[in-house]
Amino acid sequence: MNRQVEDYLEKLRCELSTLQELEREDIVRELEAHLRDCVEGGEDAAAVLLRLGEPATLAESYRESATIRRSSRSFSPFVLLRATLGLASQGVTALAVFAAGLLGYSFGLGLALTGVAKCIWPARTGAWLLHGQLIASGTQFYPPPPPAKELLGWWYVPLALISGGALLALTTGVIRTFLSWNRRAGRLRRGPRKLKSAAGLT
């Protein structure tokens, strides 16, 4: 193996660092075998590397196929939302799940944060009632003046943290279910659907 090839494969390894080691080494080993075959067949290694493309671009193509697989097992909001958005080009459902996910995460996080805010600005955070109706909740810059009455007191903190956390967990669960459902059903579903649109064309 010449120096240029070794450098290339090393760069690719770095770019693929998010994949599992077994998967990554399998890819690198396969490309290494390919390069060796080409060079032994009289081809210039540099030309083959050029056809493989930049390590970053190649790694991106590999990752695309791995993203959905991996992310349906992930708990990170970032990974989950990105994978959902990646599917959005294939259907409205994914876009809807993405939007719902974004809402769920922001409300959940917002709610939990007001629980923390209650400890910092106790008078400005809470749930206020006026004549038996909820008129404001969360952290307010100008809390409603009396006769509005704050309802929860310090109970606000655990309630906000628990319900915010529950909302985050629910959002995560929904997206994960959607991703793994899409992974299992996607391939099967796409075949017949394409057939229909092709028939529509004729």
Binding site: I27, L31, A33, H34, R51, L58, E64, S65
Partner: peptide
């Protein structure tokens, strides 16, 4: 270009359309 084909092979294997197996050659790798 190899850069297009190999990721496709990887994807096809991931969705169970293909299996992949390393085979030792008598001569070579």
């Amino acid at each position: 270009s190899e850069g297009t084909v190999y990721p496709i092979l990887s994807r096809l294997r991931a969705d169970n359309s293909l299996t992949a197996q390393w085979v030792e050659a008598e001569a070579g790798h």
